[in-house]
């Protein structure tokens, strides 16, 4: 696809977004950490406003980089805001869940998000996401922070190295997917054609979704970073169907795990709502900018941000 030169408006928005993001990454953690109690009490609204603005910026970057919001939100907000990781994970789940829910209906009507493909994966993923959330809230916070750092660094590496396949070819579907009639056809606008798809390696994928659900629930991450490669590269689902169906799976898994956070007191509306609102608004702006920017450059920025946040999380986990 040809890349048109960015407009002045886009350059301004992108520069502001990049500026704020870089500022946060460069600020020393101690400056933003939770210690100065009086400052926090005096300025709760500053943190809430900052969270909204930051989530808005993350929303733009998330769409441009083709990743879910949750995977960016949790490591970065937990590293640079004064909130305890418990509340950040609760908010992260809601960010991922709300984004998936608000985008879901049109994708399902177009046949991009596929219910028959998503439901079996969501069923196993929701069970493990509940288990993951329980494990995450039971473990010492420092251990979770350390594990989060490891997971984020691994995700950043996978995102940097992994490929994508627009229309993978599946010659022979597996027995389970045949029995469940997991296949479909969708209209691909870019080539003005119907694209039919079928899947293979369904049993192995179910195991992967079990693991992804656990990680998603434990760290409050949306699991699009992992759902999409499993659908696309392992099962052979076209990329657009993979991305859209990942949202469907995410909305169900996130809803299951969110209850654990709610019953453990780790869901604070004060933090969750501005995060949701900022991320959703940012995602809408990001979607509008999508055709006007070089998304591969943005992806490199986002992977770098993730890597930095992951390393900071590792340091915090080690108590450094």
């Amino acid at each position: 696809m040809p890349v048109t030169p960015p407009s002045k408006a886009f350059r301004a928005v992108a520069s502001a977004a990049a500026g704020i993001a870089v500022l946060f990454l460069l600020l020393p953690g101690t400056l933003l950490a939770a210690e100065p109690q009086s400052a926090i009490e005096a300025a709760w609204w500053v943190w809430v406003l900052l969270l909204f603005v930051f989530s808005f910026v993350l929303g733009i970057f998330a769409v441009l980089a083709g990743v879910g919001g949750g995977v960016l939100f949790v490591p970065i907000v937990s590293s640079f805001f004064p909130f305890h990781l418990d509340f950040v994970r609760g908010a992260g789940l809601m960010v991922a869940l709300s984004g998936a829910i608000s985008a879901g209906a049109p994708l399902m009507r177009k046949g991009l998000a596929d219910l028959k493909l998503g439901l079996p994966m969501a069923l196993v993923g929701s069970l493990s996401s509940i288990a993951g959330a329980m494990a995450g809230l039971a473990l010492p916070a420092q251990t979770v922070q350390l594990l989060l750092g490891i997971v984020i660094v691994v995700i950043a590496t996978i995102m940097f190295l992994s490929g994508k396949s627009g229309y993978p070819e599946v010659k022979v579907p597996d027995a389970l997917s045949k029995a469940l009639h997991i296949s479909g056809i969708y209209y691909e606008e870019s080539i003005k054609k119907d694209v039919s798809w079928q899947v293979h390696r369904t049993p192995l994928s179910l195991i992967f979704f079990l693991m992804i659900g656990f990680i998603g629930g434990m760290f409050g991450l949306g699991a699009g970073f992992a759902n999409v490669p499993v659908f696309n590269l392992l099962m052979g689902v076209p990329l657009k169907v993979s991305v859209a169906t990942s949202g469907l799976v995410l909305s169900i898994n996130g809803a299951a795990a969110a209850w654990v956070y709610m019953f453990k007191g780790a869901m604070l509306p004060l933090i969750a709502v501005p995060s949701i609102a900022g991320m959703m608004l940012g995602s809408k702006i990001g979607a509008k900018l999508l055709t006007r920017v070089n998304t591969s450059s943005v992806r490199i920025i986002v992977v770098s941000m993730l890597a930095v946040a992951g390393i900071r999380s590792l340091f915090k986990g080690f108590g450094i």
């Binding site: 939770a34 210690e35 109690q37 926090i40 009490e41 709760w44 943190w47 004064p82 909130f83 305890h84 418990d86 509340f87 609760g90 809230l137 916070a141 956070y261 453990k264 007191g265 780790a266 604070l268 004060l270 933090i271």
Partner: peptide
């Protein structure tokens, strides 16, 4: 909200 903000650095169970 001031009470929440004064304690949002604590673990959920402690808050």
């Amino acid at each position: 909200i001031a009470d929440i903000a004064a304690n949002w650095h604590l673990r959920a169970s402690l808050m």
